[in-house]
Amino acid sequence: MTTYYTNEHEWISVDGDVGTVGITAFAAEKLGDVVFVELPDAGKSVKKDADMAVVESVKAASDVYAPVTGEVVEGNAAIVDDPAKVNADPEGSGWFVKIKLNDKSQLTGLMDKAAYDAFCATQ
């Protein structure tokens, strides 16, 4: 299983042709306390770089973008019920959605961990 990162601070961890997507620890820390999450329904098509979910902190609302094109197979009901889980474990149990990828070659345009960490250092 390999994890990739976007410059919008999403991560996607790919197993076969399904990727688990969430926001990075860096993004969760910047957002602050998450109080509301809105996820796409299972079966919905999402498009690479288009907004797919919403995450709201006390102060502001932010869009979460799809790192790849595909179909949502599952949303994480646990973070909808308890949005604080996003802050508690953003790159683990605080995942957002699982997406069935249309085109795995889209992953090659994303960053690996080392490149993402270097990117965050410039933010």
């Binding site: 602050g32 306390d33 109080v35 902190s57 006390v58 102060k59």
Partner: peptide, 12 residues
């Protein structure tokens, strides 16, 4: 200062 380390919720 918008917030400190504890964050807005804890500060509130």
């Amino acid at each position: 200062p918008i917030q400190y380390a504890d964050g807005i919720m804890a500060e509130h």
